[in-house]
Design a protein around this nucleic acid. Structure first.
Lengths: 205, 205
DNA sequence: GGGGGCATGATACGAGCGTATGAATAGAGT
DNA sequence: ACTCTATTCATACGCTCGTATCATGCCCCC
């Protein structure tokens, strides 16, 4: 790891942005090397091929989420509060990593096998949520139901609402980039998730 | 509309499948015309350009959802029951139209302006849900909160859980293609949505 | 201080791309 | 029977693609 950017790192960085914005096929080796200020042959030299560079981009992009979500899950408090912390951290992570949803969605679209790094990360994050849900169910504070499926309901919201931010802005006039709007959105999701999970002693009226 | 397929329709059909599977840039004019059994020049002749064909594919794919969701919203019953009907219909629609999530996600990834048809459809569908939520809030059966934001929480789940079906299958061993699993998933989401919306007279225990 | 290996540079290659062009074909209307 | 129009077909063009090749620079260490 060099403190000067280094050609390999510059390629990874430029490729990540371009792949996220234009997709794999929409990004040329020439565009990447130009953006990285490198020579046309640099990708072949440092990564072997364009495809191998892409795999490296995916792996590097997915990795950090595991630690962040697992960290949020370890905050002290009741399971519902820890789930809220995970949801907020998930939103924050995706906000800090705005090109990640694009990279994830590209994986989903293609017919290539999904990158192992991506699958393992998703599994870990859903496991983090499912564990907290099961814990709350044992404590009686979370209503019954398959924890894995409930975790999917929860995780869908940060992912999709971040991924679809362009649609929200242009189609429903809700801009998650605006801090105020964004806070309301996150609070609304948190409220929805807590209400969707909490166990009640009384029937709804 | 001809009962014999017709070259234009065959192109649209072939293009939709190929665009969904390989993306815009990953799909060549030659691949489309070959799959449609048409001549290389057929796309230029019938649609003007590859891009115009793509726009036609998007418009044709998005359109049907509006009527189906609006229809489900008109079932008789309390707002919460009608919302449940919309959620179930949303899952069913996406299940009947498995290439639509891919087409939607491609829109999100690119930096081109979103297709007007796509934006209008999303806005209409979110509006359908938001109207039902507001109705339930006036009746006192749905808890307070911005109906548009709650609608986003609801809509995220069918969309993402359908779009990410490959990750669910390969990463979390939940296969929405299997009818039993799928039923459990839909039921879980419906339960989560109802719980997330319903107004309670008592505090949670 | 000169050799060795890592890194970068310029350029070439064949393949595939989207589109344009003009000829061939078919079918309906007079 | 003949023309007119709509469609299909074969082919060509200019371009960009990913990768390979080989020369050049650079710096560290013996």
């Amino acid at each position: 790891m060099n403190d000067t950017p280094g050609t390999a790192a510059a390629l990874l960085h430029a490729a990540r942005q371009l792949f996220a914005r234009h997709g794999y096929d929409g990004t040329s080796v020439r565009a990447i090397t130009r953006a990285a200020g490198a020579n046309l042959g640099a990708i072949t030299y440092h990564y072997g091929s364009k495809r191998d560079l892409y795999e490296a981009v995916i792996a590097a992009a997915m990795a950090p989420s595991r630690e962040r979500l697992a960290g949020a899950a370890q905050t002290p408090g009741a399971p519902l509060d820890r789930i809220e912390a995970v949801v907020r951290e998930f939103f924050a992570f995706l906000h800090d990593t705005p090109d990640l949803p694009s990279l994830m969605m590209q994986q989903l679209i293609g017919d290539r096998p999904l990158a192992k790094a991506a699958l393992a990360t998703v599994a870990a994050n859903m496991g983090t949520l499912a564990t907290l849900i099961a814990e709350g169910q044992r404590a009686g504070t979370i209503r019954p139901g398959d924890p894995r499926l409930l975790a999917l309901s929860i995780g869908s919201q940060p992912i999709w609402l971040t991924a679809a931010r362009r649609v929200l802005r242009e189609g429903v006039s809700i801009d998650p980039a605006d801090p105020t709007t964004r806070g309301e959105l996150v609070d609304s999701v948190v409220g929805f998730v807590r209400a969707g999970l909490v166990a009640h002693s009384e029937k709804p009226r």
